[in-house]
Amino acid sequence: MFRYIAKRLLQVVPVVIGVTLIIFLLMFILPGDPARMLVQKGASPEVLQVIREKYGLNQPWYVQYGKYMWNLLHGDFGTSIRFKRPVLDIIKDYYPNSIRLALVALIIEAVAGIASGIISAVKRHSFLDVLVTISTTILVAMPVFWFAMLLQVSFGLKWDILPISGMGDGSWRYYVLPAIALASVNTAFTARIMRSSMLEVIDCNYIWVARAKGLSERKIILKHALKNALIPVITILGLDLGTLIGSAILTETVFSWPGIGRVIYLAILQRDVPVVMGCTLILVFIFILLNLIVDVSYTYLDPRIRLGDRRAV
């Protein structure tokens, strides 16, 4: 087990090198001079030169890259060119907002997705099943930012019961609409997977045995079927947490949420390489870590699967 985890962690190295190299090269191809973005228009060439030297912008890209990676190995994420403060501080300021929102969205996704998936599998071909199928299909096709705007118009502007922008004092009311918007597409996928997984399990022999023993339908579903039907869903939920943190940029834009997606987006537009690098790397780590946790937890949930086995991959 430890060998497996160590091997997986080592595989992170090429991915990190690849990601950092790509970001660095992209930022060097980009038109626009980061030094020029720091000063007011019409600054003298001498001032620009000083700034370039201060941030090492006049060196060739591989020297800058080497320096960056060396500092990174020592835990130094560099300094934002735009905000003139350590990237680590920016990470500490904005990541918690993103993670909290993602966790709330994940709870919505899990509760709503699993519940509607079970209902529509157990009451197959009923009115409720059709309703769940139609609404999940529509949610999958719905552009998140339009859904977010619809939530704002209805709950915020028309009925005026929930705030529609920012974090305010950080109370739960500010989380509701952004979290629902963020969770929307994933909830639909979770419900679909839960439904098909449940349908598969319900047909198994041990469920028929439980039925033959005369157990109540409720007990059969919740005690016997659910345990096995949940396995694929838990995998999806684990991986979704990463997506919810990293892909929230549209939701963050519509709700003016101070999250990491917006920070990365603005940093890309402003050529703030250290911020793009630092924030993206954290995201990559979160992705890889969640992947690993999901794979390892799989062996506990389903003892038939062994790590390192081809079937497990």
């Binding site: 690849g18 790509i22 970001i23 987006y265 537009l269």
Partner: peptide, 24 residues
């Protein structure tokens, strides 16, 4: 496949944003 892995390591929308800033 290692090259492809890099594309799975960050969210789709962020990748699209990065490429768009390069291309205009």
């Amino acid at each position: 496949m290692r090259a492809a892995d890099i594309f799975f390591a960050f969210p789709y929308i962020l990748g699209a944003i990065a490429v768009m800033t390069v291309l205009g």
